[in-house]
């Protein structure tokens, strides 16, 4: 039997109040396995602001500072500064925020922290909408998706704007490390998180985090759908180390319809609309391959 590369030790205990099949539970679990106990988290308003449990319960083995929705980048800057001034070493400071708290309301504070070369890891768990408030569109919701604020009706319907490319935004900050990870590929996930831990400076991890209630899917399919996202190139797995792009899982190149049809949030899409998504995904994939080939 092959030896597992994922550490056995758990830092996320049972007791999370996440929904059945919540992808974000797995994101936290794999992340902490890679980072270990000498980690301090800061979490803004998001699903994980509720999931550790009601006070005084706390389902994580690491300390956690809750912060305001838009303030994660600032909170981790403050934590890092305090640890530095107090001479506390070997502590990984982690900002852990949802997609809305990152690409929308938290973008400014995160950009500031990245520009200041703050020595922290920022993890965005991406469930592609404001899920904690009940499935409203965010800047990270993909084109074509239904949400409660992009309802499907006769007039307009679904989201008509594409997902914000946060990886490119972070790459443009010239940070030393950025990576995408998926709960369907835990070994790749843990390896990247461990690599992020070993690098100094601002590091960014974009974690795909399927949300069964928000994506209108069966909770038992979380990992399957996450795997389809990689295999259809909807969510490619890659890293950008000191500006150099490297794809870590090429995926099977399945048609995007395989991914879309597994989720109720895309069930309204017509064949031409699915084709439009396929075209956009193919172009992005080609662009990513070109980036990898050119080393940028």
């Amino acid at each position: 039997m092959t030896k597992t590369t994922i550490p056995y030790e758990e830092f996320a205990y049972p007791g999370s109040t996440g929904c059945p099949g919540c992808g974000a539970n797995l994101v936290m679990r794999y992340l902490l396995k890679a980072l270990g106990e000498r980690t301090i988290l800061s979490i803004p308003a998001c699903c994980w602001a509720v999931m550790p449990g009601y006070w005084p319960s706390h389902c994580l083995k690491v300390p956690l500072l809750y912060t305001a929705f838009e303030a994660t980048g600032a909170a981790i800057s403050g934590l890092r500064a305090a640890l530095d001034v107090k001479g506390v070493e070997d502590v990984t400071v982690v900002g852990f925020a949802g997609d809305g708290g990152t690409v929308d309301i938290g973008l400014q504070a995160m950009s500031g922290a990245a520009e200041r070369r703050t020595d922290v890891i920022y993890v965005m768990y991406d469930n592609e909408a404001y899920m904690n408030t009940g499935i409203q569109r965010s800047g990270s919701t993909p084109w074509g998706a239904w949400t409660t604020t992009t309802p499907v009706g006769t007039n307009h319907g679904f989201k008509h704007e594409s997902k914000k490319d946060i990886m490119s935004i972070m790459q443009a900050h010239g940070i030393p490390y950025a990576a995408t990870v998926s709960v369907a590929h835990p070994e790749d996930f843990v390896k990247k998180a461990a690599k992020a831990k070993s690098i100094k400076g601002f590091r960014f991890i974009h974690a795909m985090s399927p949300c069964p209630p928000g994506w209108r899917m069966n909770p038992m399919h979380t990992v399957e759908v996450a795997r389809l996202a990689v295999d259809t190139h909807m969510f490619p797995l890659y890293e950008i180390e000191h500006g150099k792009v490297r794809i870590t899982r090429k995926g099977k190149g399945l048609p995007v319809s395989e991914y879309l049809k597994a989720q109720g949030r895309f069930s309204h899409l017509t064949a031409p609309e699915v084709s439009a998504i396929q075209k956009a995904v193919d172009e992005s994939w080609k662009l990513l391959l070109a980036k990898e080939a050119s080393g940028t």
Binding site: I40, S42, L65, T67, A68, E70, A71, G73, A74, A75, I76, S77, G78, L79, A81, A82, L83, D84, V85, K86, Q108, A109, S111, G112, E115, R116
Partner: peptide
């Protein structure tokens, strides 16, 4: 002897102070 964080907004200034003070630093 202090850390000076040139934040990108006052909102972040106070959020950083809150975090640093929570970690035991006078801010």
């Amino acid at each position: 002897r202090a850390k000076f964080i040139p934040v990108e907004s006052e909102h972040s200034a106070m959020a950083a102070c809150v975090a640093a003070q929570t970690a035991g630093a006078r801010t």
